[in-house]
Design a protein around this nucleic acid. Structure first.
Length: 422
RNA sequence: GCGGAUGUAGCUCAGCUGGUAGAGCGCCGGUUUGUGGUACCGGUUGUCGCGGGUUCGAGCCCCGUCAUUCGCCCCA
C-alpha cells in the first residue's frame, strides 16, 4: 500500500474510542473538581532540562525514551513524557509558590519513545492531579481517595487494587539503598543480568524483578521498614490510618518503588490484571524535592497520573452516542415550515437532523441507523392543518401534535428523560 | 533495546501438495416517495502490508523491510 500510515505508536481516536476517551477525561475532571482541583494546561513541549533535571538521569524515561530535538535556535526541546515536572515548572515560573497550596488537574497527550504494545503507545494520554504545598499525610490520602473515586465513577474500581508503599524520607531512603546495595552485591553472581545492571543504576528496582532467582533473593532482602526514621515511620502510620478513615482498602507492596527519581514517602499504584503486562492503570506518590529542583522553594507535594488509554480499555461498555430527533418531510410540505421547525428545535437545545434524500422508506431506514429517538413527520396534509406527527422509535407509537406546540415548547416532546436532549 | 506470533475487501476470516482471489457481516440501490429495526432481490469492494528472489507460474516457498500483537525491559 502506498497510503501513508500513522507514525508507529500513534493512533487516531474515532467513534467509540473517542467516546470512551472523552468519558474518562471528563469523569476525572469532574471528580477532581469535587476535591477542589482546578485545571491547568501547560505546553506540550518544554525545555529539555525540565525533564532531565527532575526525573533522574538514570531513569529509562530520560536515558532512552524522550522525544527530544533541537529547534531552530539550537535549543533542546522535549515533547513532555509526563505531566508532573511541567506542572512544577509552571508553579515556579508563574510565581504561585507564593500562594500555596495549589491543587491542579491536567489532561493531555504525553510522548515516550518505547516499543508499542497493548495499552502502551508513543503518544498516549494522561489525566493527573497535583497537590502542591502540603506536607501532611492527609494530603496523600486525599489524592488517593480522589483517584479511587475516579475509578469508582468509571465503574472499574472492582477490577483494580490499590498497592501502597513508603520510600521514607531522604535519610531513610539513603540508608535503605545502601543496605540493599550491600546485600545484593554479596549475591551478585546469582542475580539476573538485568538486575546486575539495576544494582549499578537503580538498586531499588531489583525488588520489582520478575526473574525467578531474583525473587528468591528479594524475599530475604533488607526491608524498608527497618530503615525508616521516626518521622518517616509516623508519616507512614498516619497515612494508613487516614486511608482507613476514608474507607479505602489497600495492599502494602514493598516492591512499589516507582521509576522516577523524585518520589519520597508515599508511592502507590492502582493495578489490574486485565491489561496483560501493562497492569498499572493509575499511579503516583509524594515528591517533596521536585519544586526545589525546578528552581523554586521547597514545596512538599503529592500527585497521581492515570493512563487514559488503559482506563478506556477497562470500561465495560462504550458510552452511547447521542440520539437525534430526525425530521422527515413527507410529500412536499411548505419548505418555509420545514426549516423553521428544524432550526426552532435546535434553538431550543434539541439534537435534530433532517432526512431529505430518497424514498420515505429510505429515510426511515436511515433514521433507524442513526439510532434516532424520534422521527418527526412533516406531512404535506398535516402541515396544511398546522400539525405534525411524532413517532417514538423504540415503541413505534405515533401521535399528532400541533406545530405551534413544537415550536414553542419542544421540551415537552423531546427532552423528558430521553437521550435526544443535549 | 531483546525474543515469539501475525499481516488476504471497511470488519471477521477462508483460500488444498505453488496454477492469474472467496464467504459472512457492512455499505449502496430496489420490493410504485405516507413509515425504520425482520424478510426478499440486485450491486459494490482488493496493486493478497511493502520490496526483492526462486519458478513457465507466488496469496502460498526464500530473504529483507514495515506494521500489529504477546512477553522481557520500563512505564500510564
Amino acid at each position: 500500500m502506498s497510503t501513508i500510515q500513522p507514525v508507529r505508536g500513534t493512533h487516531d481516536l474515532i467513534g467509540e474510542n473517542q467516546r470512551r476517551h472523552s468519558h474518562v477525561v471528563s469523569a476525572a475532571r469532574r471528580i477532581s473538581a469535587l476535591y477542589g482541583f482546578g485545571e491547568w494546561s501547560t505546553p506540550i513541549f518544554e525545555d529539555t532540562r525540565v525533564f532531565s533535571r527532575s526525573l533522574g538521569d538514570t531513569s529509562d524515561v530520560v536515558s532512552k525514551e524522550m522525544y527530544s530535538f533541537s529547534d531552530r535556535d539550537g535549543e533542546s526541546i522535549t515533547l513532555r513524557p509526563e505531566g508532573t515536572a511541567a506542572i512544577c515548572r509552571a508553579l515556579v515560573t508563574n510565581g504561585l509558590t507564593q500562594s500555596l497550596p495549589q491543587k491542579v488537574f491536567y489532561a493531555g497527550p504525553m510522548f515516550r519513545y518505547e516499543r508499542p504494545q497493548k495499552g502502551r503507545y508513543r503518544q498516549f494520554h494522561q489525566i493527573g492531579v497535583e497537590l502542591m504545598g502540603a506536607a501532611e499525610p492527609q494530603a496523600d490520602a486525599e489524592v488517593i481517595a480522589l483517584g479511587y473515586q475516579i475509578l469508582q465513577d468509571l465503574g472499574v474500581a472492582e477490577h483494580v487494587t490499590l498497592e501502597l508503599n513508603t520510600l521514607g524520607d531522604a535519610a531513610s531512603r539513603e540508608a535503605w539503598r545502601e543496605a540493599l546495595i550491600a546485600y545484593f552485591s554479596r549475591y551478585k553472581d546469582q542475580l539476573s543480568e538485568d538486575s546486575r545492571v539495576r544494582l549499578e543504576k537503580n538498586p531499588l528496582r531489583i525488588l520489582d524483578s520478575k526473574d525467578r532467582s531474583d525473587r528468591a533473593l528479594v524475599a530475604d532482602a533488607p526491608q524498608m521498614a527497618e530503615f525508616l526514621t521516626p518521622e518517616a515511620s509516623t508519616f507512614w502510620d498516619d497515612l494508613r490510618r487516614t486511608l482507613d478513615n476514608f474507607g479505602i482498602s489497600y495492599r502494602v507492596n514493598t516492591s512499589i518503588v516507582r521509576g522516577l527519581d523524585y518520589y519520597n514517602h508515599t508511592t502507590f499504584e492502582f493495578v489490574t490484571d486485565k491489561l496483560g503486562s501493562q497492569g498499572t492503570v493509575m499511579a503516583g506518590g509524594r515528591y517533596d524535592g521536585l519544586v526545589k529542583q525546578m528552581g523554586g522553594p521547597a514545596v512538599p507535594s503529592v500527585g497521581l497520573a492515570a493512563g487514559v488509554e488503559r482506563l478506556s480499555m477497562l470500561l465495560d461498555t462504550a458510552p452511547e452516542s447521542a440520539r437525534p430527533v430526525i425530521i422527515v418531510p413527507v410529500g412536499s410540505p411548505a419548505e418555509g415550515t420545514v426549516f423553521k421547525v428544524l432550526q426552532s428545535l435546535r434553538q431550543q437545545g434539541v439534537y435534530v437532523e433532517m432526512g431529505y434524500r430518497g424514498s420515505l422508506r429510505k429515510r426511515m431506514e436511515r433514521a433507524g441507523k442513526q439510532n434516532a429517538a424520534y422521527v418527526l413527520f412533516l406531512g404535506e396534509d398535516e402541515v396544511e392543518r398546522g400539525v405534525c406527527r411524532i413517532k417514538h422509535m423504540e415503541s413505534g407509537q405515533e401521535s399528532e401534535v400541533t406545530l405551534d406546540s413544537v415550536l414553542s415548547d419542544a421540551a415537552t416532546f423531546f427532552l423528558s428523560g430521553e437521550k435526544a436532549a443535549i
